[in-house]
Structure formats: structure tokens, C-alpha cells
Design a protein around this nucleic acid. Structure first.
Lengths: 136, 136
DNA sequence: TTAATATTCTACTAGTTTGGTAGAATTAGT
DNA sequence: ACTAATTCTACCAAACTAGTAGAATATTAA
């Protein structure tokens, strides 16, 4: 399951994609029903990762820094949740060997979990912020 | 990511499948490198769910209660980790509506996450304890 | 019948993660 | 200068994770 934080991050990006221009934190919080203070920390994190950019001051706010079609949920998952794989030795970006594994190369669980990861990755990668945004 | 507990549970079942007869907790713990006391609680949980059965006393131990081909990782995931879906409103067995959702029927995130769930489910369901066991 | 060895059961615990909040500092438009 | 926004650091309660402790019970073998 996604954390609330990860879910909020996705919803915030989708709303920014729908608006397409500078949006105040308060507006996002109201629309997506996210506690404003919590949303602030999430937006800062998104900014640090280059997904949004901000304008300071009284007329400031946030705006997408990348095309919404270029942000997919596999990337988002990794940012907020960590490895897509269910065990670290089956991960692509977060690979780490199992401590309790006898032989990494012949571990049947690792091989099976790698296939699960690949399937899940494909599904997540196919979903972009743009595909989630409501266009009218 | 799987919890250690869930991973241990799978490894224990796989080892029981490989042995095919009554096995002492200590043997499983040694082979699968699981803290024995922790493994005890896991085996009890597996027993309560009908996946293993036990024999008490000095020559006791655990044995699979179902055919290893009939236990798949989707079932195991649900027992030890919860919903396969990444958000509860996209879950099949653990469905729960989102508090912060505007309209469940048109929520684009729910629809997309349902596809992710379906893909992941298919992959997990295809893996059985038998397919993970090493036969010689 | 008693010692040995196994499962069973309940409770506890240290550490980490989650889902936030508080409050002050900074920035920019009017 | 005032107002309203972002930025930054620190904090916190509750839940979850990964176990451990210890006693009770069941069975076998001597």
C-alpha cells in the first residue's frame, strides 16, 4: 500500500497538471483534501527532486517543472515508497543482497520476485500524471 | 517490500515443501536462517490459517497442510502484508473507500491503480510454494 | 514415572516509520 | 511597511516491525 504521503504527492501533481499554472499550496490542500502543513513538506520534497518549481512571496505558489506526461508512477513510487520489488535482492534501482540467502544466483524466490517486480514496474510506468489528469 | 515476517513465512513453507514430511521448528530455523522464537510465532499463524499442521511432543514438528501447488504468493501476501492493491479503493479483498476521494466512480487514480493491482495479482498468483521448491 | 524435547500461548519491548504539527525565517508584491 | 506566500528545522504521538521472555502443555522414551 502507498503511504498517505505518496498518495498526497500524486494527487498534488495531478492537480497541478490540471491547473497548468502557478497554484497556491492552500488551493491544492483544499482541492485534494490534504492537511496544508503536511502538503508543504511534500511540495518541498517534490521540488528538491525537480518535479515542481516554486515562486516565493505573496503571489507565489507551485507549478509542474516537468511535462506531466514525463512523470510516471514508477518514478513516484521510488521517490516516496522505495523499491518496487517485494524483496531487495529483486530490485533494480535499490538492489541489495539478502543477508539470509544461501546463493543469490540460484535463489528461486529472488527469480520469482523479479518477475513480479517487472510486471508491477510495467504497470506503474505506463501511468503518467498526464494520464491521471482530467482534461476538459 | 515484504516484511521479514512474510518473507520468513514463505521460506518456511518452501522448506517444508522440500522436506515433505514432519520437520522440527529448529530445523527450519537453521536452514532458513530465521530466529527460532520468531519462527514459532509465524508457524502458529500459518497453522491458524490452515497452511500447516503440527504434531506436539518430543517427536513433533510441522508439515504442510495443503498441497504446495495450491499455496500461491497472492494468498501469502494477503495473509502477511494485507491488500495487494496500492490504495485500498483499488483492492479486491480488502476494499475500502478513500476518505479524501471526491467521486469513487470517476476517480482516475483508482482506475489506474486497479490495473496495477491486477497485474501484480496475476504475477503473485502464478507463483506457488511448489514452484519455489527445489526438487532433486 | 520422570526426564527430555517439542509445540503453544500470552505478554512484553526497543527501534523505526508514519502522519502529521509548531513556529520562526525568508521572500516578494502592493 | 504590510501582507501573504514559501522555506526550514525541529518536534511529536501513534502504529508497526522484528523480535524476545517465559511459562504451560503435550508426547515420547528410558
Amino acid at each position: 500500500m502507498l503511504t498517505q504521503k505518496g498518495k498526497y504527492a500524486i494527487k498534488a501533481l495531478v492537480y497541478l497538471a490540471e491547473r497548468g499554472s502557478l497554484v497556491k499550496t492552500q488551493d491544492i490542500a483544499d482541492y485534494a483534501r490534504i492537511p496544508k502543513k503536511f502538503l508543504e513538506t511534500i511540495l518541498l520534497e517534490l521540488k528538491r527532486h525537480g518535479l515542481v518549481s516554486s515562486v516565493q512571496g505573496a503571489t507565489g505558489g507551485y507549478i509542474l517543472a516537468k511535462s506531466p506526461g514525463e512523470i510516471n508512477l514508477a518514478e513516484m513510487y521510488r521517490l516516496f515508497e522505495g523499491p518496487i520489488a517485494l524483496i531487495s535482492c529483486a530490485a533494480e534501482k535499490f538492489y541489495a543482497p539478502c543477508v539470509d540467502c544461501h546463493d543469490v544466483n540460484t535463489c528461486t524466490l529472488r527469480i520469482a520476485m523479479r518477475q513480479v517486480r517487472d510486471q508491477t514496474y510495467e504497470a506503474l510506468e505506463a501511468i503518467t500524471i498526464n494520464s491521471l489528469a482530467r482534461k476538459e
